[in-house]
Computed example of a mutant assay.
Amino acid sequence: MIPGFDFLSPSPLGYFATLVKDDDGLPLLEAATAIAQDEYPDLDVQEVLGDVDQLLARLRRRCADDEHPLQRLRTLNQFFFRDLGFGGNVNNYYDPDNSHINVLLRTRRGIPITLAVIWLELAQGLGLRASGVGFPGHFMVKVNLPNGQVVIDPFSGQSLSREDLSERLEPYKRRNGLVDDFDVPVGLYLQGAAPRDILARILRNLKEIHRTQEDWLRLIAVQDRLLILLPDAWMEYRDRGLAWAEMGDAQLAVNDLEVYIEQTEDALDRDAMLRRVRELRREPNA
């Protein structure tokens, strides 16, 4: 080591913050992989990226330089879903490891959004105009081709027609009153998702799993990342504060809940959060 210099690596959170600082050039695969450092502290993110690069190199050898985009897409899907065997974890859908890219690369089983992250890296590496789609309840991917658009379910590898997509949307539309005069075209649900939105969806999937399991410590770790990614998402302060309360740390809980209360004057649960803060401070009800 050079005297006078301390080459300390950034903390996992600091590393993640650097990756997601700017939207321009945000490295989706690297940032998504880094999420797993909470569960796997010794994870070498660069090694994971190298593994995906090796898959891309194998894939490129199967494609001619002048190959039509549609044929490149077919080659990609054959390689990803059939030859490598990537697909949905139908037996244990809510396993947190389905959201960890390093585990997904080993098991070849995950959930739609993490499967999509790897698929997108390969598709874009082939020069395809591919993007993620934040479809309600089930993340999709799409490719814009010279003769139209292809939408694919990364969980199964199935190419979906407009009729398929409409059928999948029906339960969501009914639940949200988006019928008759309030109906909107399917195309509005197929907008490309930005990398920041994809990362937020991965983290919120993990958040819901940890909340269901009442695993507050892991939920707080997810909230820390969400607040780095989305610093103005005030409800994430609320949810972290409530998790701190479950952990028995009243001061950290109050700190987060007060941020939420200060920033959300019109929130429907603001009075409930005010009462929760009073309880945490052991103050009498006003």
Rank of each mutant, 00 (worst) to 15 (best):
F5S: 11
F7Q: 03
P10Y: 01
P12S: 02
L13D: 14
A17W: 10
A17I: 10
V20E: 10
K21S: 14
K21Q: 14
D24L: 09
G25I: 07
G25L: 12
G25E: 13
G25C: 05
P27V: 01
P27C: 02
L29N: 05
E30V: 01
A36D: 00
A36K: 00
D38K: 01
D38Y: 13
E39C: 04
D42V: 04
D44P: 06
V45A: 04
V48S: 00
G50N: 13
V52M: 09
R60G: 04
R60T: 15
R62D: 10
A64E: 14
D65P: 04
D66Y: 02
H68K: 00
Q71H: 12
F81H: 12
D83H: 13
G85E: 15
G87I: 09
N102E: 09
L104Y: 05
T107C: 02
R109V: 09
L115E: 03
L115N: 02
I118L: 12
I118D: 01
I118H: 02
L120H: 02
E121C: 08
L122M: 10
L126M: 09
L126A: 04
L128V: 10
R129F: 06
S131Y: 14
S131A: 10
G132M: 07
P136E: 12
V141I: 11
L145V: 08
P146H: 11
P146F: 15
N147M: 14
G148I: 00
Q149D: 14
V150C: 01
V150G: 05
P154M: 06
F155T: 01
G157W: 08
Q158I: 11
S161I: 09
R162Y: 09
E170G: 00
P171I: 06
P171R: 06
K173N: 08
G177Q: 13
G177F: 15
D180P: 02
V184E: 10
V186L: 13
L188G: 08
L188S: 15
L188K: 07
Q191K: 12
A194F: 12
P195K: 03
P195E: 04
R196Y: 00
R196C: 06
R196L: 03
I198Q: 02
R201D: 04
L206E: 04
H210W: 02
R211C: 11
R218A: 15
L219V: 04
I220C: 15
A221Y: 05
V222R: 05
V222T: 14
L226Q: 13
I228V: 15
I228E: 15
D232F: 03
D232A: 01
E236L: 10
Y237T: 07
D239Q: 07
M247C: 10
G248K: 11
G248F: 07
A250M: 09
A250N: 05
L252G: 06
N255A: 10
N255G: 10
V259M: 15
Y260G: 08
D266N: 12
L274M: 12
L274Y: 03
R275C: 07
R276Y: 11
R276I: 02
R276K: 15
L280N: 13
R282Y: 06
R282I: 00
R282E: 12
E283N: 05
P284Y: 01
